[in-house]
Write a protein that binds this DNA or RNA. Structure first.
Lengths: 347, 347
DNA sequence: CTTGATCGTCGAACCGGTTCGACGCTGAAG
DNA sequence: CTTCAGCGTCGAACCGGTTCGACGATCAAG
């Protein structure tokens, strides 16, 4: 493999001149620059990443700490990851994917050894053990997901509170008075997945304000448990006219459950989900939903991270906590409830 | 951040002695070793990855080149990735995840710059443009997936030919005489996804030998297209008694299609899939299937890669092409076809 | 009491880049 | 004809590790 010394020799200049010709950080005569570039080309010169990192204290690599929980729905995760890797590459960075069980130790390892210029954390828990380490690290960090304590990091997340309110408002305005909210499984909450209760509590609060009855329950993350649960819920609350689904597995299971029960959406039941458009497409889900925009969140986190990495001024800016506003994508799966319809005899 | 120089000073020894005390590559007195270790501990010393890479020509990082095609089913991909990252970490390596559109250029970048000690390639095409670059690279490489030309790399894949034969044999032995095979979409084939025709052609050949009629068709990768296609197929070949599914999306869509048609499995139709146990669990697929073992394949590729990275002897060994034997996991979704049943009047 | 091997430690060189200070040359100004 | 500024280039130092050869001390053998 050719080194910059080889390039310099080939071009008949010193190593430093070759370096400046390639980086453009000092004026170099047109003639010399041409010779150096030609030599680099001829020798297929590529700078050694380790050497450059040592000299510049920059690796051009970002760390991405994620966990693949088997009890969480995998496809959603992929989109976050892709948002991160794609944006990183656009900005000239590679991505070190770290999925260690012990995330705190892994984080310490990659920051202390200076393998990365910055870190994106996913699967954020309310009280995340990685955060103290990230704050102590000399590299900047960003999270996708809202932790309990946001100090010292940039935070990006969907506004789950607003999402919960938007879902309730939407159905309330259509005239619904009794709703079911199916959340993630309880163990996601136990793991500190705050987004679950953020959406739920905001929805409950808003329902209370509107005088709407909202039955909030934990879901399951797998078939067939989640299908059974849906049946049970629909049996338990026969008068509920709307279903809010903050649970990918439940959303994916709903079409066949509805079919089994001969339940028509939206005629018999209005449905709103909370997932990504990509997810909706993959599973062909016919429901209106609040877009969770995983790729956008991953991308935003990386952009902010790179800004801080590359500019000392940006590094001194105050930390941000940025929420994406939930966008309700209509697929026509909601309608005024039966009881309020003109043609219903009960009226 | 503490350097080895700081540790040495703190322990009152030279830098080289500190290095030897930490690595154990030369005998060091118990007393000095103790002091060095204590100093390293006190200063929270972590070696600088770039400096170490420069000195040793080893980065302890493996490259993982993968593409997330939106027209392929995401969950399957996750498992390959996890197999790679988990095994790499067990062996002391981190993983650089590269998802560039231009895989060949990305591969050149990470190998020439010596960011990685070895590379795992996924989404292998029959004539993969990354392979010439991998062969020319100084780092060893492994693939998950069988390319047309296996020279110079280690190859790991499911034995798709045998999988195709096993599926046909299984139903043939049960007495089936007319089967449908639904493959991946045609564009996967156009992209060079050889596993599609490897399974199909072997299945066709075996069917011919057994005197079984096999209708082989391309599938779709998304709902609702794949659901419609399933309906069409079942309409088109009403006398077919068995369905072979080499297509994750089709397998996932089948339960609701069967339900819609009032079709019972296996009483009315025998079904065998080809996917992973993890996938079956996530979608609660009730079908017997050939296990595709993505995590095992990823793990095997990494193990072989690390062997070659760490041992000069292993690096000289001949390259391997290793197939995992398909294992048929029975879930009771196959049975002798109706026509051959004792209680059927037609007999 | 030398001689020689062994053990533990040190200094220096090296890996391959970047960057700072200096220096020679050219050309314009005095 | 000097003087000085500025441009282009070079040499050297540095980043933080690893590793080789050498050297002094210790101790057993001759």
């Amino acid at each position: 493999m050719a080194t910059i010394g080889d390039v310099a020799r080939e071009a008949g200049v010193s190593r430093s001149t070759a370096s400046y010709a390639l980086s453009g950080k000092r004026p170099i005569s047109e003639e010399v620059r041409r010779r150096v570039l030609a030599a680099a080309e001829a020798l297929a010169y590529t700078p050694n990443a380790g050497a450059r990192a040592l000299a510049t204290s920059r690796t051009k690599v970002l760390g991405l700490l994620a966990r693949f929980y088997t009890d969480e729905f995998a496809p959603a995760m992929m989109q976050y990851i892709q948002g991160v890797t794609d944006t990183a590459r656009d900005l000239g960075y590679d991505t070190l994917l770290v999925t260690d069980e012990d995330g705190a130790r892994a984080l310490r390892r990659i920051t202390d050894s200076r393998m990365v210029d910055g870190v994106v954390l996913m699967n954020i828990a309310q009280d995340d053990p990685r955060l103290p380490i990230l704050r102590a690290a000399s590299q900047p960090g960003a999270t996708v997901g809202l932790p309990g304590d946001c100090s010292g990091i940039d935070v990006f997340d969907l506004d789950f509170e607003e999402a919960g309110r938007a879902m309730v408002d939407h159905l309330h305005r259509l005239g619904h008075r009794e709703l079911i909210l199916i959340s993630q499984p309880e163990h996601v909450v136990e793991r500190g997945g705050a987004y679950v209760w953020r959406l739920r509590d905001a929805a409950l609060e808003r329902a209370r304000q509107c005088g709407v009855t909202l039955h909030a329950v934990y879901g399951e993350s797998r078939q067939p448990a989640v299908g059974r649960l849906l049946h049970t819920l629909l049996d338990t609350y026969p008068s509920a006219t709307g279903l809010l689904v903050n649970n990918e597995a439940a959303a994916a299971a709903l079409p066949s459950v509805a079919h089994e029960r001969g339940l028509r959406v939206p005629e018999d039941l209005s449905v709103i989900g909370r997932y990504s458009a990509e997810f909706a497409a993959a599973f062909s889900l016919p429901y209106s939903f609040v877009e969770s925009a995983p790729d956008r969140l991953g991308s935003m986190a990386v952009r902010q991270l790179v800004r801080r990495v590359e500019s000392a001024a940006a590094r001194r800016e105050p930390f941000v906590v940025r929420f994406i506003s939930p966008e309700l994508v209509s697929r026509g799966s909601t309608t005024p409830p039966r009881a309020t319809r003109p043609r219903t005899p009960a009226r």
